[in-house]
Every structure is written in C-alpha cells, then in structure tokens.
Design a binder for these strands. Structure first.
Length: 469
RNA sequence: GGGGCCGUAGGGUAGCUUGGUCGAUCCUUUGGGCUUUGGGAGCCUGAGACUCCGGUUCAAAUCCGGGCGGCCCCA
C-alpha cells in the first residue's frame, strides 16, 4: 500500500462500495455491495445500543431560530450549514437548515417530553444523514458534505454524576463495537479548545490510518447543562424542585466504515471482519462441462447447510475462469473461500482458503465441516484484529524530547508525551509543530516529578499528538 | 485565505511543445460467438472519449481568453 490515498479511493470503487462520481462535490453513492457492509455495521450498532437506548427519527430540517439559539454551539457550525431559503418560487418566512447535527432539533422536544425525575434517564438515538458544507478537501466516507450514516445518541440525566457514568457506559459500548469491527483505537479526552462546541468535555476515539494520520472515529460529549439551560429542559425532582437535566451526546459516522476498510486492507483488497462481510463464505465451483451439475448441486447443498447455521454464504457460479473469481473475492474481502472441483468431489473434500493468510487447506466433506468452518472464521477474526492492534501499538511512540516529535510523526507515528495540560502551552506546541494534540490519554500520579515536554512545569498527563485527518 | 497543477471512452493513458498524417494510441472495461474453466485464458467480431463557451486559422484534442470541474501544497 504505497499511496494510501490512492489505494483507498481505488478500493471503494473496485470493490463496489462507493461511487464518488455523483456530480455534487462531497456526495457519493452507496452501491449494493457497500450498502450491505453498511447494513451489517448498523445492525451490530443497533444491537448494542438497543440494550438500553431507544431509536427515534427527527426531521432533516431545523428552523433558523432554533439552530442559532445556543451561541457557542452554532459558532462551531455556522460556516458549514446548508440553508433552504425557497419553497418553489416563494421565499420562506424563516430559513431552514439541513441538520449539521441534531442537538438543536432534538432538545426543544426534550424540553416538552421531560417533566419529572420519573422521565429520567432518557436515552434515545437516531441514525440519519447530516449535511456540512466542508471547505477542505472532501474524501468519500472520511470528509463528505453529506454524511450518510450519522448515529447520534442523546441522553438526559438528573445529576452530573449520572451523566459522567453515561459517558463511561458509551466508552464501554464503543470499545465493544470497534472490537467487533477489528478497528483498534486510542481513547483520549480532547483538549479544551477542541471539544464539541457547547460541551463540558469530549472523549474521542481515534484510530491510525495506514498513512500514519489519525482519524476520529467516535466521540462522546458530556454537555453538562449548557443545552438544557438554552432549551429549557427541566424536570421536577423528588423534592419538588425544578432542575436542569445533565446531558450527553455521542456520535459515530461513515468514518467507522472507512477505518474498517482501510485498516484491514492490503494490496489484494479488503479483509472484512465476519461481522460486516456481505458474504462470510464464498463458494467457488470449479466447473467442468461433464460434471457441472454434480458440482453445482453439491455447492448448493453445502451452502444450505452453512446457512442453517446462520452463516452468510454465496456461490459464484459466473461463467468465467476460477482464477478471476479468486481475485474478485479477495478484492471484496470475503473472509473464507471454499473451492469445489471434480477431484475434490471424488475425494470427498473441499478446499478452504482464509483471506488473511491465503493458505489452501483440504477439509473433509462430512458432518464436521460446519464446525471446522466456524472455527476457521473465528480464527480469521481474531487474527485480523490482532494484526490491526499490532499496527496501532507499533505506531504509538513515547518521547520526552520535543525535538523528536516531528520526526516520529513524519515516520507515521502518533506521539505520546508528558504534558502540563495548560491551554497556552498546548496551543503553542500545536502551532510550532504543525500537528494536533488529540487529547489526554492518562492522568499522572500527582506525586510524580515528571515535567512537561515543553518547559519545566510539572506534567499532569500523558497526551497524544499526531497528524490528523 | 494564498499558491501551483490538471481536464482525451466506465477506469488508467499516448498525442498537445512545433495546428494538418487523428477516420485519436495502448492497457483495462464491455456486447455477441467459438473454445474453455483447479489462480486474472485464447481466438473472431462489435461498443465506448477530445469538459463547456467564445476567439485565432483554410484547418484546433493541440494555440489564446473565459466558465465549469478536479487534484496538490501552504495558512
């Protein structure tokens, strides 16, 4: 993967995931194969969220007055908002925004829905598209003007303590989610100047892309009472006092899929985890004229057996040479290929090949097959996840010397360093180096005598700095 | 915000400097046919492009101006 940017653009197209030739900048099409990957990803996400959240759906449009009500928040988005100003030939009385995110759409309704402490905690989410007029270089899935897949959860709680707990719960859930997708991650608390506009604090998940740049793949915000005060979301507590709710929100986007594809890809194409692969197993019949029906029938029989065990299986019976099919499914990232030809049928075996190691292995065609195959794809999942984590861990380098930062980052690493946590210090560090502080990963022992990388003040944290997307 | 580069079939390209040989090259893609099928087969026969508008000229893919679109670098 010499040039990641090129590779990524290419794979999206060649594997039939995204077609970015739609004639509006920053807006692209999910093709059926990609759409299946997306659906499986969402299926998993919904499964995890539905444990203690409920799904809902808000309108796409937000009235101007409502959008600009929370001033800190709107400042973060005002340059990126698409506006609808006309209906047919008529100018609208009030401009309508295409949601860049939905806090200002949702919270006025929360203020109607939440009356008493009995209504809390309230945990809803939606999965929608959002629009941001990006002025930087757009890239499919990574920086788009239409984010087609935006999961936003919005919770409300009686106390700060509960909202902090909710943030921790989201962290746990995200970890589980990313583990299922074979995406390794770094968790950090964003610096004060880079938190979500209007939030008390932001916890972010970043991953390291093959080119060494980090990609933010998930965020969790504790909103405190900023929005509840702006939108007047109050509840009557047990003591009959009216109090503002403490809120959190948490977002995931198309970038999750970008990361899954990029991190688990290689020069041959995709290596999808079995959680999201449209087909977990692809059967390739080796068809000779005289044996055609025997072979196809056996393939169909195997497919049915495996499907009964809940596996997603397809047969590639196109009338082309087998070699072409192997390349195609390696490109598209099917975890396990099964190959069945006349010789195998005679020997009562089938040839299996994992996408990660590309070794061909003969498996007996008997009642043990399903079990063996399940073991195989479990090993495959473990292996791609392990490789992904190794890559990430090998690309986080600690340094105590600020002069090393640039070199380490240019070599494709994220740099961990001791930091005092001071905003002025952090911003100077960013300006001087040209890189971004992702955030704080760890708090140091207050007794320690470690000093900040930049000056002699005591260090309070270990933080990350990196080149970011 | 500042600077640079580039627009030729679905994708990647040659041609542009020095206008005519372009009825536009090659690879890939793709329809039909034969033959094949255990790692991208072969043969036959089709399909498919000069970003748009204007100018210069006997003649423009090629030169000039503008629009639109894309890419890269820096802030």
């Amino acid at each position: 993967m010499e040039n990641f940017s090129k590779w990524f653009h290419n794979i999206l197209k060649k594997a039939d995931i995204i077609d970015s030739r739609y004639p509006i900048k920053g807006m692209a099409i999910w093709r059926p194969y990609g759409f299946k990957i997306r659906n499986h990803t969402l299926e998993l996400l919904r499964k995890l969220l539905n444990r203690d959240h409920e799904e809902m759906l808000f309108p796409l449009l937000i009235p101007q007055e409502q959008l600009i009500k929370e001033s800190i928040h709107v400042k973060g988005f005002e340059d990126e908002v698409y506006w609808i100003t006309q209906g047919g030939q008529n100018d609208l009385n009030e401009k309508l925004a295409l949601r860049p995110t939905s806090e200002t759409a949702i919270y006025p309704m929360y203020s109607l829905w939440i009356r008493t402490h009995m209504d809390l905690p309230l945990k809803y989410y939606q999965i929608v598209n959002t629009f941001r007029y990006e002025t930087k270089h757009t890239r499919p899935l990574i920086r788009a003007r239409e984010i087609t897949t935006f999961k936003e959860a919005h919770t409300a709680h009686a106390t700060k303590k509960e909202s902090d707990k909710q943030v921790q719960d989201f962290i746990k859930m995200y970890k589980e989610f990313f583990n299922h997708l074979a995406i390794p991650f770094l968790i950090s608390k964003r610096p004060s100047w880079d938190k979500f506009p209007g939030a008390d604090y932001t916890i972010a998940f970043d991953t390291i892309m093959p080119d060494g740049k980090t990609l933010q793949i998930g965020t969790i915000h504790n909103l405190g009472t900023t929005f509840s005060k702006t939108f007047n979301i109050q509840f009557e507590d047990k003591d009959s006092q009216h109090k503002y709710v403490h809120q959190t929100c948490a977002g995931l986007s198309d970038r999750v899929i970008a990361a899954m594809i990029a991190i688990n890809g290689d020069d041959k194409g995709l290596k999808l985890p079995t959680t999201t692969a449209p087909y977990q197993i692809t059967i390739i019949p080796i068809i000779f004229k005289n044996k055609k029906n025997d072979i196809l029938n056996k393939c169909i029989e195997i497919k049915k057996t495996l499907e009964n065990e809940g596996l997603r299986v397809n047969i590639d019976d196109r009338d082309i040479r087998a070699g072409k099919k192997f390349y195609d499914w390696e490109l598209k990232g099917t975890p396990l290929k099964l190959e069945l030809g006349p010789n195998d049928l005679e020997k009562q075996v089938i040839i299996a090949m994992r996408r990660d190691n590309l070794e061909k292995i003969e498996l007996p065609l008997d009642e043990t097959l399903t079990h063996t195959i399940k073991e195989y794809i479990d090993k495959y999942d473990d292996n791609i996840a392990e490789n992904a984590w190794n890559f990430l861990e090998n690309h986080v380098k600690f340094t105590a010397n600020k002069d090393n930062i640039a070199q380490l980052i240019e070599q494709g690493n994220v740099v961990a360093f001791n930091w005092c946590g001071d905003e002025k210090c952090g911003r100077e560090l960013e300006e001087k180096t040209g890189y971004n502080i992702l955030g704080i990963s760890q708090t140091l022992d207050s007794q320690s005598e470690i000093t900040c990388i930049k000056h002699n003040k005591p260090a309070k944290y270990i933080a990350y700095i990196a080149k970011t997307y």
